[in-house]
Computed example of a mutant assay.
Amino acid sequence: MTRYAGFKLLIVDDHAHNLFTLRTLIESEMDVEVLEATSGQDAIDLTHRHPDIDLIILDVQMPEMDGFETASMLKLRKRTRDIPIIFLTAAFKSEEFQQRGFAVGAVDYLLKPIDDNLLINKISTYFRLIEKERELNRTLEQTVAQRTAELAEARQYLENIITHMGEALLVLDPGGTIKHTNPAAWKMLGYCADNLRGMSIGDVFEEEGDAEAGAFMGTWLEALIRTGALSRIEARFIARDGRRVPILFSRTAVKDPEGRISDIICIAKDMTGYVRVAENENARALPTGGSTTTR
């Protein structure tokens, strides 16, 4: 038989002879630590001093505070409410007794005189259940720890990409307030992260042409809400010192499971040093200093 070393068992009985008999039997079969209490109040006090008790064997017929009252008190406390309790009784054998015992939190009961083998088997059963539960908890904790580490690694990987990307990144709420930016945006606009957070996109964004100025949160956003489509336009950022920074700008909406826009992701490429060259009625950008040949 497994010896169950490391488990702690509390036996409660107002007769010293019964306690001695129980201890002798249990310690002959198991390497568990056995604690003794001679009353219900003594049992409650012991659970305060030993919060790691695994199982309680509790006599029902005790003066002052009987087993039912003791079990009820133990179940009131968060620290002891989940400790399995096996009732021992010589007087009550009816179904009514069993129901009352289970109602106050007992998981099992045994009749006196005690069958030694039955008692040891009962104790072993609950220790095996406790072992299995603890193993499941350890496995769950390991799985959670592993998953947490994986998520942290993935988050760090994405943060590194965002931090080192050359394009400016701005994440807006549906109303156009800036929630998050990356270092490229700080450098392009001349602001620090704390300054940008909470600003309106209209404070730093200017579309080409007077007719389109300020349209970021107007007609375009309405279309974005309807379609969720990606839009690329030529526009300008307004830097902190008033400079207009030409950009190629893309913006797209992120929607929640209900289809509502939760975020607007904006990515801007600095087009300083590039000029537009018309070719076949399409606009394209070439670096300043580039040349074209026509026939």
Rank of each mutant, 00 (worst) to 15 (best):
T2A: 09
T2L: 08
Y4P: 02
K8G: 01
I11P: 08
V12D: 08
D13A: 04
E27W: 03
S28M: 09
E33A: 11
G40M: 02
L46D: 11
T47W: 01
T47I: 12
H48S: 04
R49A: 13
H50D: 13
P51R: 12
D52C: 03
D52E: 14
L58N: 12
V60G: 02
V60E: 14
M62T: 10
E64C: 02
E64Q: 11
M65L: 15
E69H: 08
S72Y: 01
L74C: 05
L76Y: 00
R77H: 12
K78M: 07
T80P: 02
F87Q: 10
T89R: 01
A90P: 04
K93I: 07
K93R: 14
E95K: 13
F97A: 15
F97G: 03
Q98F: 00
G101T: 09
A103T: 04
V107G: 06
D108T: 02
L110H: 04
L110V: 05
K112I: 02
I114T: 04
I114C: 00
N117D: 15
I120L: 13
N121V: 04
N121E: 10
S124T: 10
T125M: 12
L129H: 09
E133Y: 05
R134Q: 15
R134K: 11
R138D: 13
T139D: 14
V144I: 15
R147L: 09
R147H: 09
R147D: 07
A154Y: 06
L158P: 00
L158W: 10
I161E: 14
H164S: 12
M165A: 08
M165V: 10
E167T: 03
A168Q: 07
A168S: 14
L169M: 14
G175L: 12
K179A: 06
A184V: 06
K187N: 11
G198T: 05
M199L: 12
G202S: 15
V204Q: 07
V204M: 10
E206S: 07
E207F: 06
E208W: 09
E208F: 09
E208Q: 12
D210E: 15
A211K: 06
A215C: 10
A223F: 04
L224I: 03
I225G: 03
G228F: 04
F237W: 07
I238Q: 13
A239S: 13
A239C: 05
G242F: 01
R243A: 15
P246N: 11
P246C: 14
I247H: 07
F249H: 08
F249W: 10
T252S: 13
E258W: 03
D263T: 05
I265E: 09
C266I: 04
C266W: 03
I267D: 07
I267V: 15
A268P: 05
M271R: 13
G273H: 08
G273W: 00
E281Y: 00
A283L: 14
R284T: 09
A285D: 06
A285V: 02
G289L: 05
G290T: 13
S291C: 04
T292L: 10
T294Q: 05
R295N: 08
